[in-house]
Structures are given as C-alpha cells and as structure tokens.
Amino acid sequence: MTLLQSLSQLGEEYVDLGWQLAEFAAVAAVVFLIGQLVVEPLARLVLDRWNLDRTLERALLKVIGVAVVVVALAAGVAAAGFTALLGGSALVVAALTLAVGFAAQDVLSNFVAGLFIVQDRNFNIDDWIEWDGRAGFIEDIGFRVTRVRTFDNETVTVPNTELATTAVTNRMSNEQLRISYSFGIGYADDIDETTRILLDVADDHEGILDDPEPSVRVTDLADSAVVLQSRFWIDSPDREEFSVARSTYIQRVKERCAAAGIDLSTTTQHDLSGELAVAEPPAVDR
C-alpha cells in the first residue's frame, strides 16, 4: 500500500468519524430541545395540577431535567453508532467507572442525603431552620447542596449531608410556636403585680394566642434579681411574625412596668423557643 493510499484511507476514516460526531451532536441536540420545550413544560403542568408540595415538585422537575440530558446523550450515541465502540473495551469502561466512583463519592452521598431531605415533610422550601449555630430560610434543595438565605440576605450553600446528619431545628414545622422570655425584677418589687402585667400584655397583644394561654413562672433567684419567665404562643410562625411579636411584647412590658414603678434594669434575658435540652456535664476525676 502506497503512502498516498494510506493517507487517503486515513482521511476517509476521519471523515467518517466527523460525520458520526455531527450525527451524534445533531440527534442529541434535537432530543434535548424536545425534552426542554415539550417534556419539561408538560411535566410542570401535570405536577401543578397534582398540587404537590413545592419542595417535592422542584425535586421531580430536576430529576426530569437530568433524565432529558441522559436520554439525549444516549440517543446521540445510538444514532452515531458509538455503542459498539463503547462496548468493545470493557476494561476501559470498568476503569472509568471505578475512577468516577471514587471521584463522585461526596456527590453521591449528598445526592442520597438530598433525597432523604426532600421526602421529609417537615423540611420544605421557605422554612426557617437553625443548625450548627446558623439560621435562615430554605431557598432551594438541589442534588448536592441546599441553599439557605440568612436573615442578612446572604446565601449559604450547605452540603446535603451536613443537614442530613446534623440536628436541625425547624421553627415553622408546626402551626404554633412558643416564645419564652425572662425578665428580672428587683427583690423589693411585687412578684404578683409583675406577673399580672406580663399576662395582661400578652392578653392585649393581637399576635399572641389565647389558647394555649400565656403563663408566667418564677424561674430563678439571681444575685440581684428575681427572674420571671413569660411564655406565650403565636400562630403560623415565621421569622417576621416571631420578631415582631417578641419585640412588641417586650416593649409593652417595659412601658407598663416602668409606669408601675417596677425595676427591670437588672434583667438578664434568655430568648428561647420550642424545647431546650441540657446534657449532664461529664464527671471530673478528682
């Protein structure tokens, strides 16, 4: 075989490969566009009619989007005739699979954690959560990360495994939320009168529920104050509702106590909501 014939044959092979690549790209693009312009809108329409939870609907739409990409690539490979090429090297495919498996361990673990998060009915988009000393509203739950918007309007990207393996407090998972606030009064002040003021302010507050009814308890005798803890409930809690109810309640208590001559200057406040668990301290060897 002459050099010219060899070059001619090589050129034909490259031309054939070029046509295969063009066919792959064309078929994959057509299938992808059909998926984006037809399949995904139809899926969104069907899911909207089913009135699914917003978090679950977003997750399903993301899965459909990934499926469209996979089907488009598979259709392109099949149309271009690359299936025989890929199947002819089992060793290469196995090596690539192993390498991708090691590289994608974190991605897969976050993906699985995301599935558990999505199926949790107490973990939804727009919920106000607190975890590991941080807090914010859930903006989106992705395959790898969950995006949380902080109260300073910053976006925090949290790996799904972190939320799946860390204790997370959801302030909005129930229809009602209890707010606890502690006031300190002087030892010379009247406890009964202060209790009456705390309850009256709660009764007059338009955002505080009558049922469950507010309560006040003496919780501590500090060095310079008698500590009274006021507990009351709000409905349909969110961050704004929580902040406004607590702020206006504290302000009105301060005003009425000042008018009654009750000293709140020694107050040490503890902002609590929900339940507080205190672990026993570890034993110390002496």
Results as ranks from 00 to 15, higher is better:
39 V>P: 01
270 H>A: 14
69 V>C: 00
58 R>Q: 13
143 F>P: 06
180 S>M: 04
120 D>T: 13
115 L>M: 14
252 R>L: 09
67 A>S: 10
243 S>Y: 15
224 S>P: 04
56 L>F: 11
234 I>D: 02
187 Y>L: 05
9 Q>K: 08
226 V>F: 04
255 E>C: 07
269 Q>S: 15
158 V>K: 06
200 D>A: 10
92 V>E: 02
68 V>A: 00
184 G>N: 08
70 V>S: 00
69 V>G: 00
21 L>N: 11
172 M>E: 04
75 A>Y: 00
280 E>I: 00
74 A>F: 00
20 Q>T: 07
237 P>C: 11
172 M>A: 12
100 V>S: 10
240 E>C: 06
75 A>T: 00
10 L>S: 08
250 I>T: 14
257 C>F: 06
54 R>T: 12
1 M>W: 08
127 D>L: 01
284 V>D: 02
67 A>Q: 00
272 L>S: 06
160 N>R: 03
258 A>M: 00
89 S>W: 07
229 Q>E: 15
9 Q>M: 13
177 L>V: 07
246 R>M: 13
195 T>A: 12
54 R>G: 05
110 N>A: 11
173 S>P: 02
197 I>D: 05
133 G>L: 03
183 F>V: 03
4 L>H: 12
253 V>Y: 07
215 S>F: 03
104 A>P: 11
275 E>P: 01
91 L>Q: 07
189 D>H: 10
118 V>K: 00
66 V>T: 14
135 A>D: 03
65 G>F: 05
88 G>I: 08
104 A>Y: 04
176 Q>I: 14
283 A>S: 10
180 S>P: 09
150 T>Y: 10
117 I>P: 04
20 Q>V: 08
267 T>Q: 03
63 V>I: 14
273 S>Y: 09
114 G>T: 03
276 L>E: 07
132 D>W: 01
42 L>E: 04
253 V>G: 07
110 N>S: 10
221 L>R: 13
40 E>G: 04
261 G>E: 03
142 G>H: 02
42 L>C: 15
207 G>T: 14
128 W>H: 10
60 L>C: 04
173 S>V: 11
4 L>C: 12
37 L>M: 06
95 A>C: 14
102 F>R: 10
144 R>H: 03
48 D>F: 09
230 S>N: 11
220 D>L: 08
248 T>C: 11
209 L>M: 15
233 W>C: 05
48 D>E: 08
270 H>Q: 05
267 T>V: 09
102 F>Q: 14
8 S>K: 09
229 Q>M: 15
91 L>R: 11
244 V>S: 11
174 N>P: 04
284 V>M: 03
62 K>W: 07
140 D>S: 12
236 S>E: 09
178 R>N: 11
9 Q>L: 12
118 V>N: 00
17 L>Y: 04
105 Q>N: 05
